[in-house]
């Protein structure tokens, strides 16, 4: 192992993540999830999230350093998510990261959360590098990105209404399956028949864009009609059919982008990439087309500090010296903009 020692901090949403990287090797990565706190609301509540980050961040940073066997003085840089995300949540990590960097006299890097997801596969696969097409899908985002080089990204398409994870959340809530919706529907689908109900796959004419609003409406309409008529199928069949509709669209659009760009590597990130059916389908499709698939283990798909540190390691290796300490968070940050 070699390369700079970087502490990465992620607090854009409902997970507090801190990690230590040595080069692109993960020395430690710890997480405090708030899922249980947000469960009763069926989603992330901004104020609850910010308060929970405040409580978690210091002990978590301590734990990350301890697990890595590193004294803070040994750090070469601190990396922290600058956006996009919930403003209150971002501010907690950003203030902590800047303070720590300042007190240690090392550079601080304000990192785009989405760029972190694009970099995450690099922590699992040495051979993952640009050019690549990467699908990013979570509760807050659904995008297909052409990674032309590190720092050189083109967003090819994305959702025109709900993010994929949001569609899972809303439909799981409607079906009474609980939060977060993705894992709930994933579990419920295990025993279900994905061909039981033929829910719509929207936007056939737009190769890289998604729409999940029509699916939502279709599921609601279908369930109410079936209930009235007494033809309600097993819940697992409905779950599996919903999951298949979302997975179909994500796989098809991603490989449309692979074909259009001619890249030979396809990557993935974001919480939705933890979905088992989606991973299975991506593996089949990549295999069939003979392209390399770089979807890291689940803990690197969901939000984490390691991917944030990873971007800073790349910056340091490229000779960057860090960002201005006077910088601020940017909740509306957009990749490639």
């Amino acid at each position: 192992m070699s390369g700079p020692l970087v502490l990465g901090i992620e607090t854009s949403c409902d997970e507090t993540g801190v990690a230590v990287l040595e080069g692109m090797s993960v020395r430690s990565s710890v997480l405090a999830s708030q899922v249980e706190m947000h469960e009763r609301f069926g989603g992330v509540v901004p104020e609850v999230a910010a308060r929970a980050h405040v409580e978690a961040i210091r002990p978590l940073a301590h734990q990350a350093l301890t697990n890595a066997g590193i004294h803070p003085d040994q750090l070469d840089a601190v990396a922290v998510t600058r956006g996009p995300g919930l403003v209150g949540a971002l501010m907690v990590g950003f203030a902590f990261g800047k303070s720590l960097a300042y007190s240690l006299g090392v550079p601080v890097f304000g990192i785009d959360h989405m760029e972190g997801h694009l970099m995450a596969p690099r922590l699992s696969f040495d051979e993952y590098e640009p050019p690549a097409v990467v699908i990013l899908a979570s509760g807050g985002h659904s995008q297909i990105v052409h990674v032309k080089g590190w720092g050189d990204y083109e967003v090819l398409g994305g959702t025109i209404d709900d993010a994929a994870g949001e569609a899972f959340d809303k439909l799981a809530r409607f079906m009474g399956l609980g939060y977060p919706g993705g894992p709930a529907i994933d579990r419920d689908s295990t025993e279900g028949d994905p061909t039981a109900v033929d829910f719509p796959r929207a936007l056939k004419d737009r190769p890289f864009d998604f729409s999940f609003s029509g699916l939502k409406t279709s599921v609601v309409t279908y369930l109410e009609k079936a209930k009235d008529e007494g033809t309600l199928p097993e819940r697992a069949d409905v779950s599996a059919s919903i999951q298949e509709a979302i997975v179909d669209v994500l796989v098809e659009k991603t490989f449309n982008a692979v074909e259009a760009t001619g890249v030979e590597r396809v990557g993935g990130g974001g919480g939705v990439l933890a979905n088992r059916r989606l991973r299975e389908r991506f593996a089949e499709e990549a295999d069939r087309r003979g392209v390399g698939l770089f979807i890291p283990e689940t803990s690197l798909c969901t939000d984490n500090g390691a991917m944030i540190a990873g971007v800073a390691v790349d910056r340091l290796n490229a000779g960057h010296e860090g960002d201005d300490l006077r910088g601020d968070v940017d909740p509306g940050l957009r990749l490639g903009a």
Binding site: P84, D161, D162, G165, E166, D169
Partner: peptide, 13 residues
């Protein structure tokens, strides 16, 4: 811009 769902982030400007 595309007006996408604000549900996850609560609000968009």
């Amino acid at each position: 811009d595309r007006i996408t769902s604000p549900s996850f982030v609560i609000s968009r400007i």
